[in-house]
Amino acid sequence: MYQTNDYEGMLAETVTLQGHGGDTINAYLARPLGPGPFPAMVLIHHAPGWDEIYREFTRRFAAHGYITITPNLFFRDGHGTPEDVGSSVRASGGADDALVVGDVEGAIRLLRSLPYASGKVGVFGTCSGGRHGFLAGCQLTGIDAIVECWGGNVVAAPEDLTPKRPVAPIDLTASLSAPLLGIFGNDDRSPTPEQVDQHEAELKQLGKDYAFHRYDGAGHGFFYYDRPNYRATQAIDGWKKVWAFLSARLG
């Protein structure tokens, strides 16, 4: 924990990395200054886009001691304001799962190559990013911790599957290879409490290493302090759960 006589410094900048298929995409990287070794995090941004709150989340994780990278998952969809690009991606049916997982894999590869990295890497995502975080944990190996915040559509009916989202992530639970922390609001309508129950039951039945925290009085996106769904009390506790989990799993 930070002490008032500690030195603290951070470097935050836009970088590039090789994502899915070797594609060059951009990303926002923030890291504590110093020789390390530091654990690392990949943040998976939500459907609204590679936006300001995710840049702030990136710096926040770095302030907590993690080399943190947030790939621009919409890089291939053109450039403009995050809202304009996000709207364009929304109209085309959202992000492609295979590309997202490939980009996350590329981000992990970059993080592990850094001389000041400890080698431990976690993943964090909210909303569609929470779903993608869980999906990455099922389709990739070598992730040391996953934080899934209110991942919608982890449970999905066959009629809701699309070429870009061809599988319901819950059906891949057997392949989950990393410890999972889940954060959910009990007033959320997707995932509904019943879907979170299903998600948890599958993890439990398969003997996975997980912990779910479910908050009354909170709906979807309750960490987003710039949206009306923000719930301070629940968000403060949720962040404490996130830091404790990552500290235990990544150091």
Partner: peptide
């Protein structure tokens, strides 16, 4: 959540 309910 992201409903992904969209039409063009």
């Amino acid at each position: 959540m992201c409903t992904m309910i969209t039409e063009r």
